[in-house]
Amino acid sequence: MKITMAHGSGGKATSELISRIFAANFKNPVLSAMEDAAVVPGAGTLAVTTDSFVVTPLFFPGGDIGRLSVCGTVNDLLMSGAVPQYLTCGFIIEEGAESDDLERMARSMAETAREAGVTIVAGDTKVVEGGGGVYINTSGVGFVPPGRRVSASLCREGDAVLVSGYLGEHHAAVLSARMGIENRIRSDCAPLGEAVESLFQNGVRVHALRDATRGGLATVLNEFAAASGCCIALREESLPVSAPVSGFCGILGLDPLYMGNEGKFAAVVDREDAEKALAVLKASQYGENAAVVGSVVPGEAGTLLVRTSIGGTRIVPELYGEGLPRIC
């Protein structure tokens, strides 16, 4: 079935689209009530976030826009120390989209939500003119357990910097799909609940957390350095990059430090807990290639440095504009 403007009319076609594809996949008592707003139990400190997902192609090696839209919002909640609970989703569908594709996306969202332990409690669908594209917005709510406080501004001199696995996989997978390059690279798109929660459960003193999405690890660590007024130094040879991504970057002139991930995060932890944090991450799902990549050092506030393999030092600035591949 092709999506037409009628599916966005608010009439029968709309309700059929919703019940057949979205309600069927996201089924739960709150959503099935089909009220204008979800009324859910809860108390304590709330974390709330929203994100919109625009990706070409909609299906790529290792994931799809549906999985991405759940992981992105769930991971944002996790990075504030929250336990994610509820999601809402809004679909903007261009006419000409295939309902089979929507079905695949919805199924993928439902599976990912189950994996992440969240419930999709509200949703919306709009159909617009266009060429079959799909855009998804998700908002999320989570609860921050008492006594937990993580913030980009809490990095202190001596703290260790960890990253939860290989860098640049999502960016390289999507770019490969766009460019029609065949390789083994798959998106790392994943919900990070188990990894993050296990840090807290094992008593690691976590100061700052952030998922390294658009702009990559370099962007996240520059944000930490700026927010905490500190200097962060990375060791080049400790940065985890898989051989296929490393080769891909070499050919295109891309830097894995700036490439987007959808299932990796940076954690700044108390120096004494570095080894424990590494062991916990390595034992967690999606964390087998975690590494301690650097530390907070004395130096110019707001600066990210890399100690290179030949013993040199370079500054890693924020990304200026788009990361454009070079010419030669």
Partner: peptide, 11 residues
């Protein structure tokens, strides 16, 4: 770019 990237001026 490679000279800057590897920090050669600093060594």
């Amino acid at each position: 770019a490679a000279i800057s990237h590897s920090g050669i001026p600093s060594v």
